[in-house]
Each structure stands twice: as C-alpha cells, then as structure tokens.
Design a protein around this nucleic acid. Structure first.
Length: 409
DNA sequence: TCTGGGGTCCTAGGACCC
DNA sequence: TCTGGGGTCCTAGGACCC
C-alpha cells in the first residue's frame, strides 16, 4: 500500500462538527426532548435539522413536515430559533479558544483548531486533547460534538465525519491511505457534483484514487481549489486558516408561491428583502457601497444586476430609488417570477456619528431619522424598537441606546 | 435533492493603457 | 485593410459549502 506521508504528526489540525446542532440546542434548552424524535423547521414546513433518533426512522433533511409525521408518528417538530443557535455557537467557539489560539470559525456549528505543538501544554496526545474538548463542550453546553484530527484541513474534515455522533477519529500521516480508500470522491470537502463526474471519467472514484493521481493530471484538468484539495489529501497543508473578520456581503432572498407576474407585487417583495438586508447590515454596523438585485423566474432562470452606490448606506430609504432603477432593468413583464433577492456588498464599517461633527454628517443623521420614520410608517409605530430587547419599552430610558442605530448623543 | 436561504472563492474575458 | 505585446483592473458567472 502506498504511504502518502512519512510522518505521523508533522502538524495537527482538528475539525470539530457539532452533532445535529440545531436540534441539540433545542434539547439542551428543553432536556425533556432528549432521546426523542425531534426536528426543527416547522415555520418553513420543511425539515431543516433532525435528531439521530428521527434519522434512524428514515426522516431526512428537506422533507415536508407533513411527510415526516407519517414516517415517524409522534415526532416533535419545532420552529427554528436562530438566535438561540447563535448563542450556543458563540459559547462553543469560546470554549475552543481555551484550547488553542488558532481557530477558524468555519460555520455556525463547525470549526478548525490548530493543535500543533500543544501536546505538552495539555499533557496528553492529540486524541486526548480532542476528548477534553468534547467533554468540556458536553459538560458546559449539554450538546455533543464529533472531532476529527489529522495533518491537513481536508483530512481533518474526513476524520470528523468518520464516526458520528460523539466520535473522535485521528488520522495520522502514515495511515491516510487506509481512510481515503473508502471515501467516495464526491464526499470530499470541496468536490461537488461537477468535479466528481469529471474525475469519474478518469476512473477516479475514491479519495485515494485522487490522491494517487499524478500532479500533471491534476494541473491539466483542474483549477486552483482542486489542486489544493489534492495536496491536502496527500497530507501537504495547502489551505490556510481564515480569520473571518466580518461579512463581505449580506443578502436576503425569498421565494413566493404561486409565482407572480405582477410588477407591483414583485417589487414589494424585493423591497422587503432590501429592508431585511439593511437591517442586518445595521446590526453589524456595516454600510454597503454596492447593491445587487436578482429575480428568479418560475423555471429557475436568474437575472441580476449590480450597481455602485453614490455613498455607503444601509438605509432602505436612501436606496429605494436605486432599487427601482435596477429592478426595471431586469424585470420583464409577462414572465412569471418565483423569487427576488437583494445583496449588499462592498461593506464598510459605518462611521459613528457625532453631533459635533461637520455638516454633511449631520445631514446623514437626518437621513437616519427619516429612515426610522419610514420604517415606522411601513411597519407600525414601534417597529424601530424591535431591536431593543426589553418588553416594556420606555422611551426616556432607551433613547440614547437604540441598538439599531448606535447614535451617541 | 425537481431546486430554501445565506455565504465564499476563483476564473475567463472584456476594457483600458502603454 | 492590415496589424503587436503585455500589463492591470473589473465583472459576471460558475462551483461549492453549510
């Protein structure tokens, strides 16, 4: 058998993947749900995530809630609660930071952790460290996770998926080939259906087949991301850790049913998306320099367009005119549309306005207040207070502390 | 995956310049 | 009508991920 790496641990990268994360969070909050068939996604009518018990009964992601009930009588289906999941996510990453300063928050429920050289600090093997991480999370958050450890990110991904839930799998350099031979090529992180079907034409069916190809073959047929994956499968680190500072874009899209060809309705859907995207941008104190818009027809054809904004903004009122213009460029009367979307990009940190600054800034503050009025008009008197968490909202107490606006007077 | 929503990165090719 | 090379910047669209 070919040995792909001559060292066992030239470096140690862990990949952590929470088990059925959304459902685990629900069960952590409501312990009486533990061990039961539970799913979330009720608000959409589609199963978004499900417990292992429900999986065992044949329920699948993407299934209609009604069908899930037939396959698995008694299944408990809850509304998704992203605020809660985000809180669990933040706390989980905080735990990881106790174990290594170098972590990559890959998604809400996944992270990479660089453990290289930390064995003595944690007085144990890399597997021992993984076990400690797993136990700490389980103890403090009451959710279970699986951890994979290997010498590259791609291999660590394979390792974390190898045994789930509550798994710990280590793939040392010398044993890579033993694991890769059972992994179908399309299951490798970063290899999608297009690349998989290309590779299969050259008899590459497993991750091992790919790792054993000549470099010249890979360079001839594939582009940079796949060359990186190839190298990582062979045990050579090629994908750096990414420090995600902030969003590069913020988008909101929503489908509607039945499809519509009414201009007024479609535009109002689009405007709604823009407002939601702006609200999110403001929450993260960001303003957009670019706005793009897309429409999806009934038969899934997408047309979109991007415009530069005269000044960075996250205020729907200031963007409505641009939105209208752009919309009219891509909207074709008579076509049936099923979805609209708005994307804010070219995001920059919003300036903190001060009343003692120059005139142009004061004008911007005026715009801010205009925007508030606009939102209130559209959604009702107190909509702008939605961002404030207190139930009994008192204007005098909160005026200086609107999270939505962050204006310090 | 008969198709939900929110993201990131890469590349080919056009525009423009010397 | 013929006819260079080379560089940079930008964009749309593809592919992939959770």
């Amino acid at each position: 058998m070919q040995v792909l790496s001559i060292h066992s641990w030239p470096q140690a990268i862990a990949h952590l993947d929470a088990d059925a994360f959304f459902v685990s969070c629900e069960q952590a909050v409501k312990p009486e749900l533990k061990g039961k068939c539970v799913a979330v996604g009720k608000e959409r009518g589609i199963i978004t995530a499900l417990s292992y018990e429900a999986k065992a009964k044949g329920v699948k992601r993407g299934m209609f809630v009604s069908d899930a009930g037939k396959i698995c009588p008694g299944i408990i289906i809850l509304d998704s609660n992203y605020e809660t999941y985000s809180l669990f996510s933040v706390r989980m990453f905080e735990i990881l930071k106790r174990f290594s300063p170098i972590i990559e928050e890959y998604s809400i429920d996944e992270a990479f952790i660089d453990l290289t050289g930390l064995r003595r600090l944690h007085s144990g093997s890399y597997e021992d460290i993984a076990l400690k991480i797993q136990q700490t999370i389980e103890k403090e958050l009451s959710i279970s996770v699986s951890v994979g450890i290997s010498i590259t990110k791609v291999l660590a991904k394979i390792a974390s998926k190898y045994k789930k839930p509550r798994g710990i799998t280590a793939i040392p350099g010398k044993e890579i080939h033993l694991y890769l031979k059972n992994i179908p090529i399309e299951d490798v992180w970063g290899i999608g259906p297009n690349t998989a079907s290309l590779l299969k034409k050259f008899n590459v069916k497993t991750a091992l087949d790919f790792a054993l190809k000549n470099e010249s073959f890979v360079k001839q047929y594939l582009s940079k991301p796949y060359i990186q994956i190839y190298n990582e499968l062979k045990g050579n680190p090629s994908i750096d850790f990414i420090k995600r500072i902030s969003y590069k874009s913020i988008s909101k899209a929503k489908s509607f049913y039945p499809p519509s060809n009414e201009e007024k309705f479609i535009f109002s859907e689009l405007l709604k998306n823009l407002e939601l995207a702006c609200a999110k941008a403001r929450r993260f104190n960001l303003a957009a320099k670019e706005l793009s818009v897309f429409l999806k027809t009934q038969d899934f054809q997408v047309s979109g367009i991007k415009v530069k904004l005269s000044s960075p903004s996250a205020m729907p009122l200031m963007l409505t005119e641009s939105l209208r213009e752009v919309f009219l460029k891509i909207y074709k009367p008579g076509y049936l549309y099923r979805q609209t979307g708005a994307v804010l990009s070219g995001l920059t940190e919003k300036i903190q306005y001060s009343l003692f600054d120059d005139v142009s800034k004061i004008e911007k503050i005026t715009d801010v207040y205009n925007a508030i009025d606009n939102i209130n008009r559209r959604f009702g008197r107190n909509s702008v207070h939605l961002a404030a968490s207190s139930d009994s909202y008192s204007l005098s107490e909160q005026t200086t502390n609107l999270p939505l606006l962050d204006i310090k007077v």
